[in-house]
Protein backbone atom coordinates (compact mmCIF):
# COMPACT_ATOMS: atom_id res chain seq x y z
CA UNK A 1 0.00 0.00 0.00
CA UNK A 2 1.18 3.50 -0.76
CA UNK A 3 -0.72 6.80 -0.58
CA UNK A 4 0.95 10.17 -1.10
CA UNK A 5 -1.10 13.13 0.05
CA UNK A 6 -0.65 16.89 -0.18
CA UNK A 7 -2.59 18.52 2.66
CA UNK A 8 -3.35 22.18 2.05
CA UNK A 9 -5.07 25.09 3.71
CA UNK A 10 -4.61 28.43 5.38
CA UNK A 11 -2.69 28.80 8.66
CA UNK A 12 -4.99 28.16 11.62
CA UNK A 13 -7.56 26.10 9.66
CA UNK A 14 -6.43 22.82 11.17
CA UNK A 15 -4.84 20.71 8.45
CA UNK A 16 -2.19 19.49 10.83
CA UNK A 17 -4.71 17.64 12.97
CA UNK A 18 -5.64 15.61 9.87
CA UNK A 19 -1.98 14.67 9.62
CA UNK A 20 -1.86 13.76 13.31
CA UNK A 21 -4.88 11.47 13.00
CA UNK A 22 -3.53 9.69 9.93
CA UNK A 23 -0.19 9.42 11.71
CA UNK A 24 -1.75 7.74 14.73
CA UNK A 25 -3.65 5.37 12.41
CA UNK A 26 -0.52 4.55 10.42
CA UNK A 27 1.49 3.80 13.54
CA UNK A 28 -1.19 1.43 14.75
CA UNK A 29 -1.29 -0.35 11.38
CA UNK A 30 2.48 -0.71 11.34
CA UNK A 31 2.75 1.46 8.23
CA UNK A 32 5.67 3.69 7.35
CA UNK A 33 4.96 7.39 7.37
CA UNK A 34 6.76 10.57 6.44
CA UNK A 35 5.12 13.90 7.00
CA UNK A 36 6.84 17.16 6.19
CA UNK A 37 5.10 20.16 7.63
CA UNK A 38 5.57 23.90 7.76
CA UNK A 39 6.29 25.42 11.17
CA UNK A 40 7.64 28.65 12.41
CA UNK A 41 5.18 31.25 11.30
CA UNK A 42 2.92 31.53 14.28
CA UNK A 43 0.96 34.25 12.61
CA UNK A 44 -2.29 33.19 11.07
CA UNK A 45 -3.39 33.54 7.52
CA UNK A 46 -0.54 32.41 5.25
CA UNK A 47 -0.78 29.34 3.01
CA UNK A 48 0.27 26.10 4.69
CA UNK A 49 0.80 22.64 3.31
CA UNK A 50 2.05 19.30 4.47
CA UNK A 51 3.34 16.35 2.45
CA UNK A 52 2.03 13.14 3.99
CA UNK A 53 3.30 9.83 2.70
CA UNK A 54 1.97 6.47 3.86
CA UNK A 55 3.37 3.16 2.73
CA UNK A 56 3.75 -0.49 3.68
CA UNK A 57 7.42 -0.30 2.65
CA UNK A 58 10.13 2.21 3.68
CA UNK A 59 9.77 5.73 2.27
CA UNK A 60 12.83 7.58 0.97
CA UNK A 61 11.98 11.24 0.51
CA UNK A 62 10.10 13.50 2.91
CA UNK A 63 8.87 15.46 -0.12
CA UNK A 64 6.51 14.28 -2.85
CA UNK A 65 7.83 14.82 -6.38
CA UNK A 66 5.88 16.56 -9.16
CA UNK A 67 3.14 14.34 -10.51
CA UNK A 68 3.55 11.99 -7.54
CA UNK A 69 0.59 12.68 -5.25
CA UNK A 70 -2.43 10.41 -5.17
CA UNK A 71 -4.45 13.03 -3.39
CA UNK A 72 -4.69 16.73 -2.75
CA UNK A 73 -6.73 17.28 0.39
CA UNK A 74 -7.55 20.93 0.98
CA UNK A 75 -9.59 23.03 3.35
CA UNK A 76 -9.71 25.89 0.87
CA UNK A 77 -10.41 25.84 -2.88
CA UNK A 78 -7.65 28.16 -4.13
CA UNK A 79 -5.13 26.33 -1.94
CA UNK A 80 -6.13 23.04 -3.60
CA UNK A 81 -5.24 24.50 -6.99
CA UNK A 82 -1.85 25.74 -5.77
CA UNK A 83 -0.53 22.18 -5.57
CA UNK A 84 -1.99 20.79 -8.82
CA UNK A 85 1.46 20.16 -10.38
CA UNK A 86 2.08 17.58 -7.65
CA UNK A 87 -0.98 15.50 -8.53
CA UNK A 88 -0.78 12.28 -10.53
CA UNK A 89 -2.89 12.37 -13.72
CA UNK A 90 -5.23 9.81 -12.16
CA UNK A 91 -5.12 11.39 -8.70
CA UNK A 92 -8.00 12.99 -6.80
CA UNK A 93 -8.57 16.47 -5.43
CA UNK A 94 -10.78 16.57 -2.36
CA UNK A 95 -11.49 20.12 -1.31
CA UNK A 96 -13.70 22.42 0.67
CA UNK A 97 -15.30 25.02 -1.61
CA UNK A 98 -15.81 27.67 1.07
CA UNK A 99 -13.18 30.31 0.24
CA UNK A 100 -10.96 31.89 2.87
CA UNK A 101 -10.53 35.42 1.55
CA UNK A 102 -7.82 37.34 3.37
CA UNK A 103 -5.97 38.82 0.42
CA UNK A 104 -7.06 41.71 -1.80
CA UNK A 105 -6.35 39.90 -5.04
CA UNK A 106 -8.23 36.69 -4.31
CA UNK A 107 -9.33 35.36 -7.72
CA UNK A 108 -12.96 35.42 -8.87
CA UNK A 109 -14.85 32.43 -7.49
CA UNK A 110 -16.03 31.41 -10.99
CA UNK A 111 -12.40 31.11 -12.08
CA UNK A 112 -11.52 28.97 -9.09
CA UNK A 113 -14.55 26.78 -9.65
CA UNK A 114 -13.94 26.36 -13.35
CA UNK A 115 -10.29 25.39 -12.80
CA UNK A 116 -11.41 22.88 -10.21
CA UNK A 117 -13.91 21.41 -12.66
CA UNK A 118 -11.13 21.02 -15.21
CA UNK A 119 -8.90 19.22 -12.73
CA UNK A 120 -9.96 15.65 -13.45
CA UNK A 121 -11.09 13.66 -10.44
CA UNK A 122 -12.54 16.11 -7.97
CA UNK A 123 -14.70 15.97 -4.85
CA UNK A 124 -15.61 19.56 -3.98
CA UNK A 125 -18.35 20.83 -1.70
CA UNK A 126 -18.97 23.31 1.08
CA UNK A 127 -17.55 21.49 4.07
CA UNK A 128 -18.06 24.38 6.46
CA UNK A 129 -21.77 24.11 5.84
CA UNK A 130 -21.91 20.34 6.26
CA UNK A 131 -19.82 20.56 9.43
CA UNK A 132 -22.13 23.20 10.88
CA UNK A 133 -25.21 21.15 10.01
CA UNK A 134 -23.96 17.75 11.17
CA UNK A 135 -21.54 18.46 13.98
CA UNK A 136 -19.91 21.79 14.79
CA UNK A 137 -18.55 24.69 12.72
CA UNK A 138 -15.09 23.79 13.92
CA UNK A 139 -15.19 20.29 12.43
CA UNK A 140 -14.74 21.16 8.74
CA UNK A 141 -11.38 19.42 8.80
CA UNK A 142 -13.01 16.16 9.92
CA UNK A 143 -15.59 16.43 7.12
CA UNK A 144 -12.62 16.82 4.80
CA UNK A 145 -10.84 13.80 6.24
CA UNK A 146 -14.03 11.75 5.83
CA UNK A 147 -14.46 12.91 2.25
CA UNK A 148 -10.88 11.90 1.48
CA UNK A 149 -11.00 8.58 3.33
CA UNK A 150 -12.27 6.44 0.42
CA UNK A 151 -9.08 7.31 -1.50
CA UNK A 152 -6.72 6.46 1.35
CA UNK A 153 -5.63 2.87 1.39
CA UNK A 154 -6.69 2.29 5.00
CA UNK A 155 -9.82 0.87 6.65
CA UNK A 156 -12.19 3.63 7.78
CA UNK A 157 -12.38 1.98 11.22
CA UNK A 158 -8.65 2.51 11.60
CA UNK A 159 -8.99 6.20 10.79
CA UNK A 160 -11.89 6.45 13.26
CA UNK A 161 -9.62 4.91 15.88
CA UNK A 162 -7.11 7.63 15.05
CA UNK A 163 -9.78 10.29 15.64
CA UNK A 164 -10.62 8.74 19.00
CA UNK A 165 -7.01 8.63 20.10
CA UNK A 166 -6.27 12.21 19.03
CA UNK A 167 -9.41 13.82 20.49
CA UNK A 168 -9.79 11.41 23.41
CA UNK A 169 -8.21 13.82 25.87
CA UNK A 170 -10.85 16.43 25.09
CA UNK A 171 -13.76 14.28 26.19
CA UNK A 172 -16.36 12.00 24.67
CA UNK A 173 -18.61 14.79 23.33
CA UNK A 174 -15.78 16.22 21.20
CA UNK A 175 -14.86 12.75 19.95
CA UNK A 176 -18.45 12.05 18.93
CA UNK A 177 -18.86 15.39 17.22
CA UNK A 178 -15.68 14.84 15.20
CA UNK A 179 -16.71 11.29 14.29
CA UNK A 180 -20.06 12.58 13.13
CA UNK A 181 -18.38 15.14 10.91
CA UNK A 182 -16.01 12.48 9.60
CA UNK A 183 -18.89 10.15 8.71
CA UNK A 184 -20.84 12.93 7.02
CA UNK A 185 -17.87 13.65 4.75
CA UNK A 186 -17.34 9.96 4.10
CA UNK A 187 -20.97 9.48 3.14
CA UNK A 188 -20.84 12.44 0.76
CA UNK A 189 -17.95 10.97 -1.22
CA UNK A 190 -19.39 7.45 -1.17
CA UNK A 191 -22.63 8.71 -2.71
CA UNK A 192 -20.70 10.70 -5.26
CA UNK A 193 -18.49 7.88 -6.49
CA UNK A 194 -21.42 5.46 -6.58
CA UNK A 195 -23.04 7.59 -9.26
Amino acid sequence: MKTDIVLAGVGGQGILSIATILGAAALKEGLYLKQAEVHGMSQRGGDVQSNLRLSSSPIASDLIPFGGADLIVSLEPMEALRYRPYLKPEGWIVTNTAPFVNIDNYPAMEDVESELEDSGNVVAFDMDELAKKEASPRASNMVLLGAAAPFIDMETEVIEEGIRSVFGKKGEAIVESNLKAFRAGLEYTRQLIKK
Binding site: G46, D47, G67, L81, P85, I103, P107, V112, S119
Partner: peptide, 22 residues
Amino acid sequence: ATEPKGESKVVMPRPPALCQGC
Protein backbone atom coordinates in the same frame (compact mmCIF):
# COMPACT_ATOMS: atom_id res chain seq x y z
CA ALA B 1 12.42 14.44 -16.55
CA THR B 2 9.25 15.39 -14.75
CA GLU B 3 8.01 18.83 -15.59
CA PRO B 4 5.43 20.43 -13.34
CA LYS B 5 2.12 20.12 -15.18
CA GLY B 6 -1.23 21.71 -14.56
CA GLU B 7 -0.01 24.85 -12.87
CA SER B 8 -2.99 27.00 -11.92
CA LYS B 9 -3.55 30.28 -13.70
CA VAL B 10 -5.63 31.83 -10.95
CA VAL B 11 -3.77 31.09 -7.71
CA MET B 12 -2.39 34.13 -5.90
CA PRO B 13 0.33 34.24 -3.24
CA ARG B 14 -1.01 34.26 0.30
CA PRO B 15 1.76 35.70 2.48
CA PRO B 16 1.55 35.46 6.27
CA ALA B 17 0.25 38.57 7.97
CA LEU B 18 0.15 39.88 11.52
CA CYS B 19 -2.77 38.20 13.29
CA GLN B 20 -5.98 40.17 13.44
CA GLY B 21 -6.01 41.79 16.87
CA CYS B 22 -2.23 41.72 17.31
